[in-house]
């Protein structure tokens, strides 16, 4: 078990280093010196030349520009780790400032979506399998098919349309009511967010939830056909014990191991929804940065998202090892 965790941990570090290297190469690729560009930009904006000089000098020192590449990489990586995400050309602000709130919101919404998906999909999928071919099964099989096939931005658009035409909403949806959008974080703002967030969870999570229902149903059906379920039944166990104690823990395995993979899906899914619903998430910012060739910003976002993904994967692996003795004993 210990070696297993250690292995996974080392794997995680390796992935992180590779991602950072790739990001770094992308940052370094564009022709022309970053500092020249910066100076030009600041001059165009009529900034005080002294300030320009000092800003440029500060970046030169911080990123070790002019030194050889691995020192530059080291400095860049180090500053990233300290939370300095670099400077956005497009927005003229440090990247971390731009990301700040959006990043944490994105992560929270993703986690909430995952939980939503789990809580909704696992019981529904399980019951569909237990009551195979029942009305319940047929309706959810149909709904899940619908959920898988309808892209989330359509759901978002439909939702927009409904809220405008039926509910007469004037503000287009968002994460907050208009009065809270710029307000400081407070209890009231939090409550306001909760009121809005479930719709977002629903829209973002619908596709994944529907997919998970299908996976859960299929896995549960497979598991219920296994001979060890007959063994459990022949002990005289009640249905609930057979389903929960014996079948569920085997059937749920692939869903847990797929958590790590769902994370990027949710983020890309939420990006489209966030664009449609104008949500302050990280996805639209990344898209913006990519379109505007804002390399520092884009790479920082990529690195941070990768980190989140890799950690998510690591946690999923741990959960799996804890649940499944076969993995625990492999090493």
């Amino acid at each position: 078990m210990k070696t297993y965790i250690l292995q996974r941990f080392i794997q995680m570090i390796i992935v992180m280093v590779v991602v950072m290297l790739v990001s770094f190469i992308i940052v370094e690729l564009p022709p022309g010196d970053f500092l020249t560009t910066l100076r030009e930009q600041l001059t165009e904006q009529n900034v005080d030349p002294k300030v320009i000089d000092s800003t440029v000098e500060m970046y030169r020192a911080r990123y070790g520009l002019g030194e050889n590449w691995f020192i530059r990489f080291g400095k860049w990586a180090w500053s990233l780790m300290k939370g300095d995400m670099g400077y956005s050309m497009q927005h003229n602000r440090p990247a971390s400032e731009l990301m700040g709130e959006r990043l944490s919101l994105t992560i929270w919404i993703s986690i909430a979506t995952l939980i939503f998906m789990f809580v909704v999909a696992v019981p529904i999928g399980m019951l569909s399998a237990i009551k195979q071919y029942s009305a319940w099964d047929h309706s959810f099989t149909f709904l899940a098919l619908l959920g898988v096939s309808v892209p989330s931005f359509i759901t978002a658009l439909v939702f927009l349309l409904l809220s405008v035409t039926l509910l007469g909403a004037t503000t287009v949806a968002g994460l907050f009511s208009p009065e809270y959008v710029t307000a400081e974080w407070s209890w009231a703002k939090f409550v306001d967010m909760l009121k809005h967030v479930w719709i977002i969870l629903f829209i973002v999570g619908l596709g994944d939830t529907a997919g998970t229902i299908r996976v859960m149903r299929a896995r549960m059906l497979d598991t219920l056909g296994e001979p060890y379920i007959d063994t459990a039944r022949m002990k005289g166990l009640s249905g609930a014990k057979v389903y929960f104690r014996h079948a569920l823990r085997v059937a749920i395995n692939p869903i847990i191991s797929s958590i790590g993979l769902r994370f990027p899906q949710i983020i890309s899914g939420s990006t489209i929804v966030a664009i449609v619903l104008t949500l302050p998430l990280i996805g639209p910012l990344l898209l913006d940065a990519l379109l505007g060739e804002d390399v520092y910003l884009a790479c920082s976002i990529l690195v941070v998202l990768t980190l989140a993904l890799v950690i998510g994967n690591f946690l999923a692996d741990l959960a799996l090892a804890w649940l499944d003795p076969r993995i625990r004993f492999e090493n």
């Binding site: 001979p227 063994t231 022949m234 005289g236 499944d324």
Partner: peptide, 22 residues
């Protein structure tokens, strides 16, 4: 259920798959 396992028991063809893996 009261009969199963207490008055009558059963063993199956595939021992490899008849023991719960976890």
């Amino acid at each position: 259920r009261q009969i199963r396992g207490r008055d009558v028991s059963m063993i199956f063809q595939e021992p490899m798959r008849s023991v719960h893996p976890m």
